[in-house]
Amino acid sequence: MFEFFAYIDPGTGSFAIQAVIGTIMGVTYAARHRIRVIVGKLRKKKGSDSDTPPTNNPENKS
């Protein structure tokens, strides 16, 4: 368990929920990240030059 010192009150409930939703969203994130890496490798094999780094900002996605 991580106990934290901050100048704003992080909120006990707001901390507790992160342990739960973080796990779910972390799994999704890791899976997405893996897929991106695999797709990136496949593209490289095909000789494509679109070697864009993975991003987690949907606004930046084309």
Binding site: M1, F2, P10, T12, F15, A16, A19, M25, Y29
Partner: peptide, 13 residues
């Protein structure tokens, strides 16, 4: 407030 969240979980959030 006390909890543990891994770096991957934080990035996922």
């Amino acid at each position: 407030a006390a909890a543990s969240v891994s770096t991957v979980s934080l990035k996922g959030m």
